[in-house]
């Protein structure tokens, strides 16, 4: 089978979603893609397709109407994926905290791996956060590729092989004492 792992490490694709931001962080993300900061040297491409992306960049405190789309995009992204909250208002709600149409931050809805502060986050900070996100992406990849057992060993009682209850439930681990 074709080995995707080295390629994913070299070229993480980002998906950008504006969940109610003021455009400040969005234009700084755009500035990151421009020649001065140029995150394309890390192999980063801004893609509009969630099914091909590895890093999810979210800006803005999550508004009521954008949250469904946010979660839809998050669930459509394949594992392993990293979520970056860009901007103060994405991390905590910031100046928009407690406004009536705002959900006070991204981590109430989806798990966040990297928080990038600043209003607006400067391109240097975003690049720092992205490099951090790449490390997390790599460790998540390793975690996924670790082999694990789906079944317990069958029990052998009086010459009768019994495979009942040998399938593991989701998230269940095998105790070392049993095997």
């Amino acid at each position: 089978m074709f080995d995707f792992k080295p390629i994913r490490k070299k070229s993480p694709w980002i998906l950008h979603y504006n969940a109610g931001s003021c455009n400040g962080c969005d234009i700084e993300i755009l500035a990151c893609l421009s020649p001065k900061y140029d995150i394309e040297r890390f192999g980063v491409i801004n893609t509009g397709n969630p099914k091909q992306s590895d890093v999810f960049l979210v800006t803005g405190p999550v508004t009521f109407r954008s949250r469904e789309r946010l979660i839809e995009l998050y669930t459509q992204m394949p594992e392993p994926k990293v979520v970056m909250a860009v901007g103060s208002c994405t991390c905590t709600g910031g100046v928009f905290r407690d406004m009536y149409n705002v959900e006070d931050g991204l981590d109430r809805y989806i798990p966040v791996d990297v928080y990038v502060p600043g209003c607006a986050s400067s391109p240097e900070l975003i690049i720092d956060g992205l490099v951090k996100a790449l490390e997390i992406l790599e460790s998540k990849t390793k975690e996924i590729e670790k082999p694990f057992k789906l079944f317990r060993n069958e029990t052998n009682k009086d010459g009768v092989v019994n495979r009942r209850n040998s399938a593991l439930k989701v998230g269940e681990e095998i105790d070392d004492e049993e095997n």
Partner: peptide, 30 residues
């Protein structure tokens, strides 16, 4: 209407008049 946050309402309930200049700047970054 996807990015409606309710800044007009917050200007009359949450913030005093001397700070609103910095709040309304967050209506739009450009």
């Amino acid at each position: 209407g996807f990015v409606h946050r309710g800044i007009e309402k917050a200007c009359t309930t949450k913030f005093k008049f001397d700070g609103i200049g910095y709040v309304v700047a967050r209506v739009c970054g450009l």
